[in-house]
Write a protein that binds this DNA or RNA. Structure first.
Lengths: 353, 353
DNA sequence: TTGTAGGCGTTATCAG
DNA sequence: CTGATAACGCCTACAA
């Protein structure tokens, strides 16, 4: 007896298959006794319904999918936690799908939608552009969460939740400049990144410009394309190169906390102290940044709130309560312990107040 | 035109459905021209085959599932990476399924097996006991990877890959004792844990006993049951309590690197220096431990090798080349920077060399 | 090389 | 309240 199916259970209980189906799905029109009897039989013969068959037939699976690009990104963990809670609260099922760096998330979404009869989709992270008309093809509501959108003119076509990466990155760079730093190295993503990486770099550029500090190309470190992006290792290697090339700088700004930690280790290994010799800043506001020693100065994205807003927005769309909209959250600069004042010249009044 | 199906494509191309199916699955007996024509039509009408229907019909999906308990555990990340590579190398598909802390992984496995017609399963982490006869019910080969098995007598019933958690934990505790520490606090899992947590605690106990050091209950800190297990936060709070209660100790041994980092932060916040005032050790050998400052002393599990062995074992079982077997890997003690010699008495010659 | 028909396990729509 | 029966989309004999 390899594997029970609904017919077997029906036979065992001496009822029709539809009655079993009703018991399975808590349909109202079934007598409590038969219901109980059937459930009992299922337990005994440890029957497990076949989801493929269910999905094939069902109209509405009450399921929403979350597609995560970058499984290791610790920033997403806290958001996923909230997704689970919120979706469960609505009595929907959640299917969490990891998307590899090289995979096309839209392809994955299309396939999954067919397979699982999804009601909605959350895209978390990723989205390296060229997706315009393909996004239109997605037949269910979706929200882009924590995804940088470079293309400003089509931005309002999609529902999205994020921080203003340019503005937040500006904020951080500005802070470092206020602290007296002029030569700030930035560790960023690969040159072909058209997502948050590019936006954060842009914020850096703007802040420098605003303060009349010339942009030095040798201080802008792009990650190699093949490397595990936004990782500690990446930050480590970028910083090693920086040091090896003898580039002068008083601060490093990494566009993720993980990279910042990698950078910190590279500095320590090279005999530098943080922040006494070199100041260091990250981005995201992950738990790790706070636990690190020294605690990493970072821009905290309100991950939980953003996750909650993402789900709310998605369900508003499901219920037709709203069209696509954008929600932009404000980040918080967390000073940490990794940034010190720098005195560019004796006239500076840094640290006076 | 909501959604194309195989019939639509067949009609469009003026062929039968089976021809389309053959094109889809690279069957040999189909003329290259028709094949090309059909593929073309699929692209144009962006047809995506329905996986539910496929799985329902198919016998063998060439798919293996990896069920991961504890999404945030950074130790698993590197293993998962290897799983992906190795499984792809065998030209199988991988479905990665996250299992919540409170979920029963066997239930999930049973359901998934029916849904996806799995060829094999990897259980990664978890397994809090009472699963004897339920494991037998799983109708496909499976391997328990990095799962502590308390029940020694039935251990050889299952295929498994892991380190000897008791021995490795002994090794670490012994190392700390060699370094002159006598009062070693251990941060471990909840009291009802019957998996790796219990095994690592046992190793600690044995080492103390061996050295004639009495076990002090106040130095054994169990995590609260509801808390996010093995996390930095847990380690932080356990250490805070330890400090608040004024328990005396010269070293802390946390049974995971994350907890060790949490502990470190708690010590620093309390004005202690690591390792000058308090020594600190973790377990797992994650990337984070190496990048932390000070680098955490830990037992490195050979994650990549273990992952590779897991897949090899599973495929050997698939191919009927072997029955269930156990493979035990050796951990490596990584000294890091977080442990210092302790001088229990003036006669000690610690630091002499 | 290609088309037709039956069935995978469920759910939904009808009659009773 | 319950039971037959027709789909759901695809694969696969088998027939042509």
């Amino acid at each position: 007896m390899a594997s029970m199916n609904i017919k077997d259970i029906a036979k065992i209980c001496g009822v029709g298959v539809s009655t079993v189906s009703r018991a399975l799905n808590n349909h109202p029109d079934i007598s409590p006794q038969t219901r109980e009897r059937i459930m009992q039989a299922m337990k005994e013969h440890n029957y497990v319904p076949n989801n493929s068959a269910r999905n094939l037939k069902r109209q509405d699976a009450r399921t929403i999918a979350v597609l995560v690009k970058g499984i290791n990104n610790p920033f997403f963990s806290s958001m996923i936690q909230v997704f689970e809670e919120e979706i469960q609260k609505k009595r929907y099922a959640l299917v969490l799908q990891h998307v590899d760096e090289w995979q096309d998330e839209i392809d994955v979404a299309m396939e999954l939608e067919k397979e699982k009869r999804l009601n909605g989709i959350v895209f978390l992270g990723g989205f390296f552009s060229h997706s315009e008309e393909r996004l239109q093809k997605i037949p269910v509501p979706f929200v882009l969460s924590t995804i940088g959108i470079l293309d400003q003119k089509h931005k309002s076509d999609y529902a999205s939740v994020c921080v203003d990466d340019v503005a937040e990155s500006y904020k951080m760079t500005d802070y470092l400049i206020q602290k007296g730093h002029q030569r700030i190295a930035i560790l960023c993503s690969s040159t072909d990144d058209a997502s948050i990486g590019a936006l954060r770099l842009e914020g850096y550029r703007m802040a420098l410009k605003e303060h009349g500090i010339p942009l030095r190309e040798e201080l802008v470190r792009h990650m190699h394309r093949d490397v595990d992006s936004y990782s500690m290792k990446t930050g480590y290697e970028q910083t090693r190169e920086l040091l090896k090339e003898g580039v002068e700088f008083t601060a490093i700004y990494a566009i993720s906390d993980s990279m910042a930690i990698g950078a910190c280790r590279a500095l320590i290994d090279a005999g530098k102290r943080v922040p006494e010799d070199i100041s260091l800043a990250g981005f995201d506001g992950t738990e790790m940044a706070a636990y690190y020693h020294p605690a990493i100065c970072t821009v905290r994205q309100p991950a939980e709130e953003m996750a909650r807003a993402t789900i709310k927005m998605l369900f508003d769309m499901l219920k037709k309560k709203s069209r696509v909209q954008q929600r932009i959250f404000e980040g918080t600069l967390v000073e940490g312990e990794s940034v010190a004042d720098n005195e560019p010249n004796p006239v500076s009044h840094a640290g006076m107040r």
